[in-house]
Simulated scan of single mutants.
Amino acid sequence: MSDYSSKNYSWNDISIAIGGRIIEGIEDVEYSAKQEKSVLRGRGGKGHKITRGNKDFEGKINLWQSEVEAMIKDAPNKDILALSFDIIWSFIPDDGGATVTDVLTTCEITEYKKAMKQGDKNMLVELPFIFLDVKNQQ
């Protein structure tokens, strides 16, 4: 059995790179991995096996408008929905603990919406995305 550390990481330990550039204007990030599963039934009232199907990966990031504008500038035909990129998510603790890095491969944004209201000091843009795979603890 491998060594296990119960180290808890904080937002201050996080570093996110999109398309090879560390993003300063990020306020929220999340992703999920799902797999279709069902019980294989045969003789009797209990299942015999759990079968597995397709895996799906999705997430979302909330970025400052300036970060979104930089992504649009780099996108094919200035269309952020045509942009394909990897997200590298690293936890780098100041106390010398282990660095943990997840790589989300071939990400593409599925939609975006820009909005502001009176009194806002900064525009945040939520970008939902899908991706092909997650490489944990790289």
Rank of each mutant, 00 (worst) to 15 (best):
G25M: 01
G25C: 00
E27W: 00
V29P: 02
V29N: 01
E30C: 13
Y31T: 06
S32K: 11
A33D: 06
Q35C: 10
K37M: 00
K37Y: 00
V39M: 13
R41F: 05
G42C: 00
G44S: 15
G45W: 14
K46L: 15
K46M: 14
K49V: 10
I50R: 07
I50Q: 07
I50F: 01
T51W: 03
T51A: 12
G53I: 13
D56C: 05
D56K: 14
D56P: 01
F57V: 02
G59A: 04
I61R: 02
I61H: 04
N62Y: 10
W64G: 09
Q65N: 08
E67F: 01
E67R: 02
A70I: 05
A70T: 08
M71C: 03
K73Q: 10
K73Y: 10
A75G: 12
P76H: 09
K78R: 12
D79L: 03
L81W: 07
S84Q: 08
S84D: 03
F85P: 02
F85T: 05
F85H: 09
D86A: 06
W89Y: 08
S90F: 03
I92H: 01
P93K: 12
D94Q: 09
D94T: 08
G96D: 04
G96N: 06
T101L: 01
D102W: 02
D102V: 05
L104A: 06
L104P: 05
T105K: 15
T105I: 02
T105P: 00
T105V: 10
T106W: 06
I109S: 05
T110W: 02
E111K: 12
K114E: 11
A115D: 14
M116V: 14
M116W: 14
K117F: 00
K117A: 07
Q118F: 02
Q118I: 06
Q118L: 08
G119E: 11
D120N: 13
D120L: 08
K121L: 09
N122A: 06
N122T: 08
N122I: 09
N122D: 02
M123Y: 11
V125M: 08
E126G: 08
E126C: 08
F131N: 02
